[in-house]
Structure formats: C-alpha cells, structure tokens
C-alpha cells in the first residue's frame, strides 16, 4: 500500500498585522517610528498596541507584518538575551540582526516563513564608549530572510511611498542630523502614509536608541494632518 501523507499546513496569509515601520539614523543614535494599531484585514482591530520591543539597553526591535509571529519572536529574542547573559554579555544589534536573519532564512527554506519585516535598531556597546566613532545601527530583515543595513528605511507600504522622501531629507544633513530633525522627518513621513495607506493609523510612537541614553521607548502621540483636499478630490456625495 502506498504511504499516506498528511497535508502540510502552512500559514498562507498573515492574520493580524502591523503596517509600516520608519527608521532613521541621527548623529548619536537611531529613531524608529511605528503606528499603534493592529489590523485584521483592513479593519483596525486592536488600538494602542506597541510594535516596538526593547531587547536591552542597546537594542530595539520593531516589526511590521503578522502580530502573532512577532509575539513568538519576542519569546525567541528573550531566550537569546538569556543565552548571551550566560557568558556575561548583552546581545548587540549586529549579533541579533545576524541571528534573526538566519532564523527567518531557515524558516523560509522550510517553506514556512515568519510573516514579518523586522527592523533591528541599536548601538554597539563598544561604540557607545567611543563618542567619536559611534555609528548607530539599523538592520532590516524581510520575511524571506533578505537582510541589509541602512541609514534610513521605510518598510511595508512605506517602502513604496516613503523611501525617496526620507532619503531626500536625510541627504540634506547626512550624518549631522539631530534627533529633533530626524523625528520631524519621521512625522512628515507618517503623515504621508496616513493619506495613502488605509491601514496606517494616526496614533503612533517614536522609540530611539541613543549612544548616551540607551533605548528610550516613545510616548503615544497623535497627528491629525491636513484633510482639506479630501473635500475636492474624493467624489464624496
């Protein structure tokens, strides 16, 4: 008799999702912005949910994509932190980025990918002590394990809408950007997603990793934007 194989079950669609992540380097650190909604399809199902996870004083991980997968990843990261503690080290952004890259790539090779785009932001411990050369780190990992480092990024629908706008702003000042300037660029970018991305929300938070202050999770903020154009453009009755 021919062997009977059960069907393999795979996640074919993410269920509850987070939208864009926008991150940018400034002189002594990184700022990362996410909105605070988790959608179920197009419905804004859960409000006031943070999509930023503080790993330790040097590393902040932010996600877009499936929320359940990210909750599972938080547990994986927590165990990594404990593994590194066992030999008296705090895991750095580069190491965590490398590890998550391997993990996401291994999962996609099993044809069972984690449905997340991850942004790992942080400062290496030894860079912290050397103020002259302190270079902040932003690393991206897509759900297929494609990974790269950048000075600024927008993921999700923001990847189509915002990268050019963010880059233009970044190039004006380059590495000399202050935190206030970087945050202003992010807020402007959020406003653009708000207009174009129907699952983006106007409640958001800006977290940061600074060489001097470490990880600082942002407070909840709201933006209204300018909706006057809607009156003339949207063919409302």
């Amino acid at each position: 008799m021919a062997p009977v194989h059960d069907e393999l079950q795979r996640t074919l669609n993410p269920t509850c999702t987070g939208a864009s992540v926008i991150a940018m380097q400034y002189k002594t650190g990184v700022v990362v912005m996410t909105d605070r909604v988790v959608s179920y399809g197009k419905m804004a199902r859960y409000k006031n949910v943070s999509r930023q996870y503080k790993v330790n004083d040097n590393v902040l991980v932010t996600f877009g994509g499936d929320h359940a997968d990210f909750q599972w990843l938080q547990n994986v990261i927590e165990r990594q932190v404990l593994l590194w503690k066992r030999f008296d080290q705090d895991i750095g952004p580069k190491a965590l980025h490398g590890y998550l890259t391997s993990l996401l790539y291994a999962r996609r090779c099993k044809m069972n990918p984690l449905w997340n785009t991850l942004v790992v932001a942080g400062v290496e411990e030894e860079e912290k002590n050397n103020k002259e050369t302190s270079t902040p780190f932003i690393g991206i990992i897509t759900q297929k394990g494609c990974a790269y480092q950048v000075k600024h990024v927008a993921t999700g629908l923001g990847a189509f809408l915002l990268n050019q706008a963010v880059e233009d702003e970044f190039r004006k000042k380059g590495d000399e950007l202050t935190r206030q300037e970087a945050e202003a660029v992010l807020k402007k970018a959020l406003e653009l997603t708000l207009y174009h991305d129907c699952v983006a929300d106007n409640d958001f938070e800006i977290g940061r990793v600074d060489a001097n202050e470490g990880v600082v999770l942002g407070k909840e903020q709201t933006i209204i934007g300018d909706w006057s154009i809607a009156e003339t453009n949207c063919q409302y009755e």
Partner: peptide
C-alpha cells in the same frame, strides 16, 4: 558565524 554573522565570543567557546 553562520548563526550570528560574527566571531564567537571566547567565553562561549570555553563553555
């Protein structure tokens, strides 16, 4: 190196 894209810490090697 495959897991973390970094050299192994000596303490981990000793362990």
């Amino acid at each position: 190196r495959w897991d973390y894209k970094l050299p192994i810490p000596m303490k981990k090697l000793a362990e």
